[in-house]
Design a protein around this nucleic acid. Structure first.
Lengths: 216, 216
DNA sequence: GTCTATAGTTGGATAGAC
DNA sequence: GTCTATCCAACTATAGAC
């Protein structure tokens, strides 16, 4: 039963498994190259080299350069959305609205700053890819945006956050503050968690006034 | 004295004047095209068409595509820096630190959202251009960053803002919140000034607690 | 200063061997 | 599934006419 042959097997399971594994390596390599060199600068040959193949071979797995970048971004968005949602679900039901926002901010930022991660590549790519891809991607992001919108409107309904600011503006401002970090962050001086804590403190508590103490 | 001849004049003033005017139109057109299509998507022929010339003619004014994009970005950064600085200088000397931050936030955002403006193109381009250009650009941005750093450290020294957050993180988070707007903002529902006010309210006052009243 | 024409590259995409 | 070879389109950049 434990047939060792691996060539020429009709067994679709193994073939699909192998192709799928290669596909995943390509996506990871593509994320790194696109992230580092930008959409314009990334060459298929660079991506192929990273997985030990030649440029032409990529076409067995993806229809085109654009299909590849889109697959990377789909995965990145899915990853971010699912991780943040999971983190929120894991909270006890009696957790306050402000704390929930804080958790979401931390989770999102940690994904953004994950070293060479697909999520962070996605964020950097969104404004670099051709308009058509971007439109589709932005449409998909609405679902993730809805998660944040609900977080904010629930908080407001409960009286946990101020009522004199537009929640769409606030939501985009938070996204900007977090996503921008993908560009300036260099590992070393601070951890993603520390940064998340400071941004959350600013967003939720505000800079003005407050204790003058050094960080606890 | 008022020599009307305009051809073959040795007079450097007029020649420079004309060339300079054309140069400015090209920069404005380039900003719009680069902003709309991204660094990768923008074609020299598109830019040339916008000023009513052919692609090849651009080379009389700029050495290369890269020189052109760099000139756009230099101008954009300078514009932003100078405008924000001027707005701050115009304030009465006794204005509080928090108010000064608010003014800087408003000024920066208004530039970012200026319709088809060179400043907003610059922001979008920074992570799209080749690494070498980006490095030079980021170096130039340090001077502008210094303005914000001083704004924040002065405020902290005066006890006007909380002491438990890292000011570099705060600075970059503010930049992110503001710059991101270049991407999502669509004129219509809100004015740049309203958006600036909401972001400033969040950054300075925080979302948590506060009045539940509708915007005044 | 701008045009036309074209040289020169680059890199995405395809075909067929293995 | 991957390779080699090649085609082909796109676009930057240059040369010389006007």
């Amino acid at each position: 039963m434990l047939d060792q042959r691996h060539a020429r097997r009709g067994d679709a399971t193994e073939d699909l498994g192998k192709a799928e594994a290669t596909r995943q390596s390509i996506l990871a390599a593509a994320a790194r190259v696109f992230r580092a060199d930008g959409y314009a600068g990334a060459r298929l040959s660079d991506i192929a080299a990273k997985v030990g193949m030649k440029a032409g071979s990529l076409y067995y797995h993806f229809d085109s350069r654009e299909a590849l970048v889109e697959a990377v971004m789909d995965l990145g968005l899915k990853q971010t959305h699912e991780t943040v949602a999971k983190r929120l679900r894991a909270l006890p039901p009696d957790v306050g609205h402000v704390r929930r926002l804080e958790v979401a901010i931390e989770a999102h930022l940690e994904l953004v700053l994950a070293h060479e991660d697909i999520s962070s590549a996605t964020i950097k790519l969104i404004w670099q890819v051709p308009a058509q891809i971007r439109e589709r991607q932005l449409a998909d992001q609405r679902a993730y945006g809805a998660l944040w919108r609900k977080l904010l409107t629930d908080a407001r309904k409960a009286g946990a956050i101020r009522g004199d600011v537009d929640l769409s503006v606030v939501r985009m401002a938070i996204m900007g503050a977090l996503n921008w970090a993908a560009d300036w962050y260099k590992p070393g001086r601070m951890t993603p968690r520390q940064i998340a804590r400071d941004i959350a403190a600013m967003v939720l508590g505000g800079l003005a006034g407050e204790p003058k103490n050094k960080r606890k």
